[in-house]
Design a protein around this nucleic acid. Structure first.
Lengths: 114, 114
DNA sequence: TTTATTTATCGTTTTTTTACGATAAATTTT
DNA sequence: AAAATTTATCGTAAAAAAACGATAAATAAA
């Protein structure tokens, strides 16, 4: 492999699994998004702009993070009048957990040498 | 909170735990790094430039990814002559698993509303 | 000793992410 | 009906990540 680095489309060079795990990991790759997820889990009744109150970020920035979490599938959102309501997508987390577990299992039976 | 967005240093606004999880997740947030980790685990004898052979990326780019994984603590490296050898840091993965498990547990007992 | 191999690092470019303010649309409240 | 509230989106700026080629240092092979 690696003549002129194979394909022009880098994304396609990796497996579907690798891409999916990377996408999900990316959703967790910012402390603000982790804080949002924790807050959504804490109040099991869904919240909306209350998240903004809790985070040290501007409303538009929080909105952006919420969008990313939603696009990754980790949260669900619904509109209630002028307010909007988000919550944990339980099924997605279960799936995420499964993918991670499988991944970690691979690393488990490798005895390092360094 | 949130008057002028609190502190000027955004990083400090989140907990140590949130930051650590975000850092670890970021290390997984690229398919190339996942592929590298899988390859390191597959050959349980450590490899080095053989990783470059397997990935559709330039040598310098792979080297960069290896550095990031090492900085995140997920892999260990050692030099053997002109070659350099990397391997899975088993303890780090165990720790990572623990942190994730704790995090997922929080999300588990939240019944969504959307 | 000269040549070849291996790999980390430098410099650079391009792309993505993060963050904010301003604004617009929708909906309550007054 | 007018004013206020809520929130997504737009435009933009700054920072970080991703990628490459070139190079230098170290070691191995000739």
């Amino acid at each position: 492999m690696n003549l002129l680095h194979m394909s022009t489309n880098k994304k396609e060079a990796f497996t579907q699994e690798e891409q999916e795990l990377a996408e999900l990991a990316k959703a967790l790759a910012h402390p603000a998004r982790i804080a949002i997820l924790k807050e959504l889990a804490r109040r099991n009744v869904c919240i909306c702009g209350e998240i903004v109150e809790v985070l040290p970020l501007a409303q538009s920035t929080v909105s952006q993070h919420l969008k990313e979490l939603q696009q990754a599938g980790l949260i669900k959102g619904s509109v209630d009048g002028v307010k909007s309501c988000y919550c944990i997508n339980y099924e997605a987390f279960k799936r995420f957990e499964g993918i991670l577990e499988k991944f970690f299992r691979i690393t488990e039976n490798s005895q390092g040498c360094c």
